[in-house]
Simulated assay, not measured.
Amino acid sequence: MEKRTHILLVDDEENILEPLDHYLKSQGLETSLARDAKSALELIKKLPIDLAVLDIMLGQSDGLELCRDIQHVKPMPVIFLSGRAEDTERIIGLELGADDYLAKPFNPRELLARIRAVLRRYASPATASHDEKLKIGPWQLDVSNQELMQKDGSRLELSTGETRLLYVFLSHPDMVLSRDELLKMTQGRQTNPFDRSIDNYVSRLRKKIESDPSNPIHIKTYWGGGYAFNSKGNLGSC
Rank of each mutant, 00 (worst) to 15 (best):
M76P: 02
S231W: 04
Q190F: 15
L54S: 05
P75C: 14
M1Q: 03
D199H: 14
Y222A: 06
H72S: 02
G63N: 03
V168D: 04
L33N: 11
T221I: 14
L43D: 04
I209L: 08
I49Y: 11
D199V: 01
L29G: 09
H172V: 02
T127Y: 04
I7D: 11
M1G: 06
G28Q: 10
K220E: 14
H22K: 06
A228D: 12
I70W: 11
G28Y: 14
H6W: 07
R120I: 01
L183N: 07
S159E: 09
K45Y: 03
L41R: 10
L148E: 00
R179T: 03
R90K: 14
P108L: 12
I7F: 11
K133N: 00
F229Q: 02
E95R: 13
A98C: 03
T163M: 09
I49Q: 09
K38F: 10
S211T: 14
Y101T: 00
K207Q: 11
R109T: 10
G59V: 11
E147R: 04
I49K: 04
V168T: 06
P108R: 06
H72C: 00
M57Q: 11
E89W: 06
D69I: 08
F194W: 12
S129F: 11
F229C: 05
Q150A: 00
F106H: 06
M76D: 09
P138R: 07
Q187K: 08
E14V: 03
L20Y: 02
T127W: 05
Y201W: 05
G97Q: 09
L96K: 03
Y222W: 08
L43E: 07
P75W: 15
L81K: 09
D180E: 15
R84I: 15
L9K: 02
D142R: 00
T191C: 13
I56T: 04
D152K: 04
F80S: 01
L66V: 07
A126G: 09
I56N: 03
S61W: 15
V73I: 15
P216G: 01
S197F: 01
L94R: 09
S124Y: 11
I7M: 11
L33G: 06
K207N: 10
L165K: 01
K3V: 01
R206T: 10
R84F: 15
Y222R: 08
Q60F: 15
V118G: 06
S39V: 04
V10W: 09
K232P: 05
E110W: 05
L8Y: 07
F169C: 01
Q71K: 14
R120A: 01
R84Y: 15
E95N: 09
H130P: 01
L66E: 04
R4W: 11
D12E: 07
I79L: 12
G236S: 09
K25L: 05
Y227V: 12
F80G: 02
G137F: 12
T5W: 04
R121V: 00
L24W: 02
L166G: 00
P138M: 04
E157L: 13
L96A: 05
G161P: 03
V143R: 02
S129A: 02
E132T: 00
Q71E: 11
P173F: 08
R121H: 02
Q146D: 00
D55S: 13
P48R: 15
V53E: 15
L17D: 04
T5Q: 08
G233Y: 07
S159R: 12
L64N: 05
